[in-house]
Write a protein that binds this DNA or RNA. Structure first.
Lengths: 341, 341
DNA sequence: CTGTTAGCGCATTCAG
DNA sequence: CTGAATGCGCTAACAG
């Protein structure tokens, strides 16, 4: 496993025949180094496989070259894509990404209480997380810039979509098709975080109530399976809705699955709309609200590094557009007061 | 955003009325500190929100308290789960996880060439990645312990499953049911990495050839969609196979989808077996090979920190068990020479 | 444009 | 059991 005798900067200096500080300047891309000298230093460093110790340089600069990303879960599609987006930006600016998973509010609070990030990262990106006021105070005490991804938080830079507006638009699409009994399916929130779901639900409510219809909300378990169970619940009601909007594609896929098992044709018997537009949505021909998750991440990364170099102010807010992708799971209700009847 | 005037160790020392080195010892849990003094120091530190600067301590200890995780992609299910497993262990030992995505061999080589990890992490966990010999040399030159997750690599600690054996077992299950025309569907490998697929394919081949049958291998695009396309190809052959084993659940889900669209009953017309046992496998009642991905990650984390504290040797190999989960997508062929005809 | 000097915050000798 | 010195590897003034 090779000797742990990594070359240090002075070794490079010796080999290049210059002083320590010249190496430092050259390697850092600082101005004021003769091109020829710079080249010589770079070659020497490369030959020796030299790499600066961030620990040492951060000791004097106060910057670590690292950004923390906090996610509630590592596994779901959304977070993978968001992290990929963040990573794509951070890599381009040479910043490392250290990842923490905090499954619920308690974990977050505990985590913040120990403040492991202070002085060990330059900034933190919180994905789909909204800390409570206590936590915000803690964060503030850490004194680290923090940017929120997929959540608008006043006072902090954040990137997000118009959750309510998007859900409202999707609901309106169903209303315009002539549906009047439209249900909303959301996942149970065990994490204690105030999720998007609240906002999406709000958008749905707004659209439905505007036409004087009754909101029908089913709250079930998360994931595809949760969707299937929610569908079962809907199908056992008196007045089965003719359309359903779900909080996520996973849920929608579950609904589709349950309907198929019951041999209920989609969209003839029931229209289904998801939220996310993840890969399988297209495959299952699911009408859904597309959100630019990768861009959300990339933008969060940009904000984070922007805050550090001063190019982004403390409360910059970036709203990214969503789009309703109409596919095969939505149509006018069979015998409704709809446009096409 | 608060003042960036973080307290340093000397501040804690002053507050606790002891010397710097006593604080250092107390906070590090080193022996040789009076319990009463230790408590006093800890309280002082807590009150001030003091956190040690890893950069400063690593400057003298040579350890960073950080482990790098390299994955080919951030997004797919497998990597999210594996990272969750790794994270669960690392968190328990207070080690940070810095994540890098390297999409293909070129990215990996480029990445290793710049050696950004040396001196910035204590070890690296490579997930589902097998570097070429050149890369291994590079890694060796970095002088960092490296453990492989989901790949057996001689000379390095690694955690893995018996890929070939699992695929062989799954194939044998189909053979035992009476299938004789069994196809294998794998995803095109654009990354340049030698994936598991090779080993799984090998296991499939072994089982099929043992009974003198002809291997039928379809290589398509990855993901659910790729599976659907592969199914289309299978369905346009002279002798449509009566069963198919896929390299991953995603692929299998795509196959199921295509079959359903063609109104071909599963398992009556065709049996389908996946590989992974991800969440949706159960939902779609897919027979599949379950692999303990989370454990794979956790074990890799354990190996990594074990190598650091000397409790794990340089080439410890851990094989985790897989299991065939028989669900509704497999059955004896309709009119075959099978057991149940 | 380049070299010299002085710490950054901590762990670690070594004395007491 | 505790405190006073030394240096980890680097950047940032400051001179030249």
């Amino acid at each position: 496993m090779a000797a742990s005798e990594h070359p240090r900067m002075s070794d490079v200096a010796a080999r290049a025949g210059v002083s320590l500080s010249t190496v430092s300047r050259a390697l850092r891309g600082a101005s004021g180094v003769a091109p020829e000298v710079r080249a010589r230093v770079e070659r020497a460093a490369a030959e020796m496989g030299y790499v600066v110790s961030r620990g040492a340089s951060s000791l004097v600069t106060g910057l670590t070259g690292r950004i923390a990303v906090i996610v509630p879960f590592l596994q779901p599609w959304f977070f993978g894509v968001a992290m990929a987006g963040i990573h794509s930006h951070l890599r381009s600016v040479g910043t490392d990404m250290v990842v923490y998973e905090v499954g619920d509010t308690r974990a977050l609070t505990d985590y913040l209480r120990t403040l492991p990030l202070r002085r060990n990262v330059d900034a933190v990106i919180a994905v789909s997380l909204r800390p409570g006021q206590d936590d915000l105070d803690q964060l503030d005490a850490i004194g680290l810039p923090i940017v929120f991804c997929s959540h608008r938080v006043t006072g902090f830079p954040s990137v997000f979509i118009d959750e309510a507006g998007a859900a409202e638009g999707a609901t309106r699409h169903l209303l315009n098709l002539g549906h009047t009994r439209i249900a909303y399916v959301q996942a149970q929130d065990d994490t204690g975080f105030p999720w998007h779901s609240r906002l999406r639900l709000e958008g749905y409510r707004r659209a439905v109530e505007r036409i004087g219809a009754e909101p029908v909300v089913v709250t079930g378990r998360p994931g595809v399976e949760g969707g299937a169970l929610a569908a079962a619940e809907l199908l056992s009601r008196d007045d089965i809705p003719t359309a359903v909007l779900t909080e996520s594609d996973d849920l929608a896929l579950g609904v589709l699955r349950a309907l198929r098992r019951s041999r209920l044709a989609v969209p003839e018997v029931m229209s289904v709309v998801g939220f996310d537009d993840q890969e399988s949505a297209a495959l299952f021909d699911l009408t859904t609200v597309a959100q630019p998750v990768h861009r959300l991440g990339a933008e969060a990364g940009r904000l984070a590094s922007g805050v550090l170099d001063g190019s982004v102010s403390g409360d910059t807010h970036v709203e990214l557009p969503t789009g309703l992708v109409i596919r095969g799971t939505t149509a006018a209700p069979r015998r409704g007061p709809g446009l096409t009847g």
